[in-house]
């Protein structure tokens, strides 16, 4: 049996869930945790945050 991705059962979501958000695919979840990809993201993110923080100087 496939393990459920969305933990909240449909019977609960059917009548009150209007927040149609995003659910990460298996590839996206892997990408988020892949140490090599994330190492490069870390460098990019640090540079982006530095650029943003430099507005405050």
């Amino acid at each position: 049996m496939n393990k459920r991705k969305v933990k909240i059962p449909w019977s609960e979501r059917a009548y009150n869930d209007w927040n149609f958000g995003m659910y990460p695919t298996r590839f996206e979840q892997w990408k988020r945790r892949c140490l090599i990809i994330q190492f490069f993201r870390f460098i990019i993110l640090s540079l982006k945050f530095k650029k943003t923080a430099s507005i405050n100087d």
Binding site: R33, R41, F42, L45, S46, I55
Partner: peptide, 14 residues
């Protein structure tokens, strides 16, 4: 240009 968001381990290390 300065308003960004992402999910990943990189942010956690940060």
């Amino acid at each position: 240009r300065y308003t960004i968001g992402e999910v990943g381990t990189a942010g956690h290390w940060f």
